[in-house]
Each structure stands twice: as structure tokens, then as C-alpha cells.
């Protein structure tokens, strides 16, 4: 059958103009010494990459990012399954009402979530409750790194756990009812049913694996929430602050007046990040049962 290649041309043109071209140029920039004080874009080799590998601030931000990626995706997965179980075991009315409520955060701009979950919004009320309301005399100190990281993970999970819920609900609903009926006849408890039927079905589904991979790719570039929180903690100008994800680090290098606009270095970090993203995409393509048929 003759393929109408002409139908692909506009799409390909956009792919080249917005993705391939800029990425190639980023790569070339990463090989140069281009910055505000050095306008030459000529490639000088991989020295930026070598320098990056021994840069403690970069490694710190990679650590922070990996920690946040891992934490958020795990929380999202667990909460997503939990919500999906609640939803699928409810009646049709409750199901539609509550799943509509649960997916609201997906629609909220991440920057707004950064504001919503900011220390002086949610945690003020919670702290008032803990400190005065319940007279416990304790409060959540949002400046402590561990609490801070956890709260960022929770904010990210706030947006994306509902996505995992949606995917999990679809998987649970595709499990044949007979499996549960057979288990009930044999006297299986709810836990056994979850453990032997539901959970294996969820984790063996390509859909959940692909979703988790895509969430990981998204979390790698996590920007808005840590960016917003940077300001509240007054760390917005400090390189290597405890909350700098790789994206926030790049932003600081980009916007701070202290660093001569070091384009070459920023693109170097961006290319390293891109390699991670592209590897995840390759995995997604490999694991998805639907994308390439």
C-alpha cells in the first residue's frame, strides 16, 4: 500500500524545527565556551562535560533529583493503587463523583500547585491546628531538608497520583470477574484477592510500567514546585542549595547575574539530562504494546 508521505511532512518539519534543530544547536553550544563574556560559539571539545563530571554542585543536584524522582514516583504508585481500589470497589455513582474529584489536580498548573502547597499556605493551617488547635506544641518545620523533600514529593504526587489511579482503574476493570468469583468460592480473603490477583495484574501490565517510566521522565525535569519553594526559603540565588533539582540549577545559572550567563555550561547539563530522558523514552517504546503497531 502506498504511504501518503506528504501527510507526514508538516509534522516532520515541526519535529525538526522544535526538537532536532534546537537539540543539535544545544549540543554544539555545549562544546563551546559561549557566555556573556565570551561570544564565540566555536566548538572546543568536550571540556564542559569533563568539568561537569567533577562538579560537586552538579552531582548534588543530580542526587536531589534522583531522590525526588524515586520518592515521588513511589508515592504516586502507592497512592494511585490505593485510590484505584477505593474507586473500583464503590458503586457507579460514587465512582464517577469521586474520580472526578480526584483528577482535579491533574488539571492544575504545576506552578499553581507550587503556590497551593507552599509553606505559608497549607502548612500554616496545619501548624495552627497542631500548635494551638490541638495544643500539642509541635509544628512542621518546613525548612528542614527531609521534611522539605518529602513535601515536594507529596506536592508532585498531589498532581500525578490521580494519573496512576486512572491507569490502575483501567487495569483492574480489565481483570476478568471470573478470577475473583473463583477466589471467592475458594474462600479467599480480600487481602488474598488483592495479593494474588489484583496486584500481579497491575504490575505485569505494560500500561502501568509505561506510565511509571513516563512519570520518571517527567520527574527528572521537575521544575515548577522546587522553583516556587526556592523563593519561600530564600534560596533563589544560591547555587547548590538543598532543593536544587537539575532544572532549578540550570535556571539559577541562567537567570543569576553572578555567573556571566554561562550558556555552554547550561547546555552541557541539559544534554546530560536529555540523554537520560531519551533512554527512558526508548524503554517506553520498547515496553509499550500499543505505540508502534
Amino acid at each position: 500500500m502506498k504511504v501518503p508521505y506528504i501527510f507526514l511532512i508538516p509534522c516532520l518539519v515541526i519535529i525538526f524545527l522544535t526538537l532536532v534543530g534546537p537539540v543539535l544547536q544545544s549540543f554544539l553550544l555545549s562544546l563551546s565556551e559561549f557566555s556573556l563574556v565570551n561570544p564565540s560559539q566555536a566548538p572546543v571539545g568536550f571540556q564542559n562535560y569533563i568539568a561537569l563530571l567533577s562538579d560537586s554542585i552538579f552531582w548534588k543536584s543530580i542526587q536531589v533529583t534522583l531522590f525526588l524522582v524515586f520518592g515521588s514516583v513511589v508515592i504516586e504508585f502507592v497512592v494511585g493503587i490505593f485510590l484505584a481500589l477505593l474507586i473500583t470497589s464503590s458503586g457507579p455513582r460514587a465512582r464517577s463523583i469521586f474520580s472526578s474529584i480526584f483528577i482535579i489536580p491533574i488539571a492544575i498548573a504545576p506552578i499553581v500547585v507550587g503556590i497551593l502547597w507552599s509553606p505559608n499556605s497549607v502548612f500554616d493551617d496545619l501548624n495552627t491546628l497542631l500548635y494551638y488547635g490541638l495544643s500539642l506544641g509541635v509544628y512542621i518545620d518546613t525548612t528542614r531538608p527531609f521534611i522539605y523533600y518529602s513535601l515536594i514529593m507529596i506536592s508532585d504526587a498531589y498532581i500525578w497520583a490521580p494519573l496512576l489511579m486512572l491507569v490502575t482503574v483501567a487495569i483492574i476493570r480489565s481483570i476478568p470477574r471470573e478470577q475473583y468469583e473463583a477466589a471467592e468460592v475458594m474462600g479467599a480473603s480480600s487481602w488474598t484477592k488483592f495479593n494474588k490477583i489484583t496486584f500481579p495484574a497491575i504490575i505485569s501490565s505494560p500500561a502501568i510500567i509505561v506510565t511509571l517510566l513516563l512519570r520518571m521522565a517527567d520527574a527528572f525535569r521537575m521544575f515548577e514546585i522546587p522553583y516556587a519553594w526556592n523563593f519561600w526559603l530564600g534560596q533563589d540565588s544560591e547555587l547548590g542549595a538543598s532543593v536544587d533539582t537539575v532544572s532549578v540549577l540550570m535556571w539559577k545559572m541562567f537567570s543569576s547575574t553572578m555567573y556571566d550567563f554561562p550558556i555552554a555550561q547550561i547546555t552541557t547539563i541539559a544534554i546530560v539530562l536529555l540523554i537520560m530522558t531519551l533512554s527512558i523514552c526508548a524503554l517506553v517504546l520498547k515496553r509499550s504494546s500499543t505505540l508502534l503497531d
Binding site: P22, V23, R221, C281
Partner: peptide
């Protein structure tokens, strides 16, 4: 298209 969906904006921003 997957890459466009997941790419860090910094990889294309400076160009």
C-alpha cells in the same frame, strides 16, 4: 514525539 513530550525545556531553550 515521545521525546518532545518528555524533554527538559532547557535542552531546547537556549537555541
Amino acid at each position: 514525539l515521545l521525546a518532545m513530550r518528555t524533554i527538559s525545556p532547557f535542552a531546547v531553550l537556549l537555541p
